[in-house]
């Protein structure tokens, strides 16, 4: 949210929890609240706060009813309306949070159709870090030309935060950005208004699958750069390859620990073979601090 206050983001995340768990979550010391990245719950187990790599226990005996209530609150008591993402194991929560879920998967015709009897939940606390991408920006642009860039890190590494700040900086710098925000985690639109600062010249396509959204914004919005979060499917890669051939800049995030790890994955070979992306920003974590390095992607 535009408050930029990290503690208040934690409080907003805690407000999604059922009342007993909320009280326990708010008892975490303020310093840890500021650094907390996730609230994690396990049915019959504990509610914990993930700070860095460590989980701090907050209270025990999370009940199945509390898990169900958490899902209901997260889905605005409309789980039926969130079925598309629920069957993929997560719920986007109003205010820019994401609730990852584990439970019993209901299969229908070989595909997950529902998630019931929730066993675990991880409430990701999305935050803005304005300026985090500033040192990187000169490496990614040459005059008015943007080098197609992949942001790499393992899950929870801060890819979305970096992507959001890059979008904001490029947009502030006069670039027309089209943001295809499939999971609604980058701009966090509520009733058409981005709740996160993504810059004044950013056009947000919210909730649209990337493979559909990339050609849509390309046709409709005349963007200079298209930004997408979490490229995971072959169709996304095809759409990006097509967009790259149209002279538009691309900025995307991918789950990968390093460039070497990325090269080993067959899914991304097409992107690398076609030289769709020229640069990779790798996020490393040492002693709780994030470090960023820009690497050339070899052919």
């Amino acid at each position: 949210m535009r408050t930029g206050k990290r503690g208040s983001r934690y409080e907003a995340a805690a407000a999604i929890l059922p009342s007993r768990l909320r009280q326990a979550a708010l008892e975490l010391p303020a310093e840890l609240q500021k650094a907390a990245e996730e609230l994690r719950l396990r049915t019959g187990g504990e509610l914990t706060a993930l700070v860095g790599e460590e989980e701090f226990p907050l209270c025990g005996d999370v009940t199945a009813e509390e898990m169900e209530t958490l899902c209901d609150i997260a889905a605005d008591f409309s789980r039926y309306a969130a079925m598309e993402t629920l069957r993929e194991g997560y719920l986007p929560v109003r205010g820019g949070f994401r609730l990852g879920l584990c439970g019993t998967v209901v299969m229908k015709v070989g595909a997950a159709s529902n998630l019931r009897h929730i066993t675990s939940a991880a409430l990701r606390i999305g935050r803005e870090h304005p300026g985090v991408a500033e040192p990187l920006l000169p490496r990614l642009t040459e005059g008015r030309r943007f080098s197609n860039t992949l942001i790499l890190s393992p899950p929870g590494g801060g890819k979305t935060t970096l992507l959001r700040d890059l979008v904001r900086l490029l947009s502030n710098g006069g670039w027309r950005i089209a943001l295809v925000d499939e999971r609604g985690e980058v701009a966090v639109c509520h009733q058409g208004i981005p709740q996160m600062d993504v810059g004044p010249r950013t056009d947000v396509l919210d909730g649209c699958p990337k493979a559909l959204g990339i050609p849509m914004v390309l046709r409709a919005m005349n963007p200079q750069v298209i930004a997408v979060d979490e490229v995971t499917a072959r169709e996304d890669i095809r759409s990006m390859t097509m967009a790259a051939g149209c002279g538009v800049g691309l900025l995307a995030t991918v789950h990968a620990g390093s460039v070497e790890e990325l090269c080993e994955r067959p899914l991304y070979r097409e992107l690398l073979e076609h030289r769709v992306f020229r640069l990779a920003v790798c996020i490393h974590r040492t002693e709780g601090q994030r470090h960023y390095s820009v690497e050339e992607l070899a052919e």
Binding site: T69, D72, F77, R79, Y80, M83
Partner: peptide, 10 residues
């Protein structure tokens, strides 16, 4: 009865 999945609420 207003909580749960589509089937339950419906």
């Amino acid at each position: 009865g207003l909580s749960g999945d589509e089937e339950a609420v419906y």
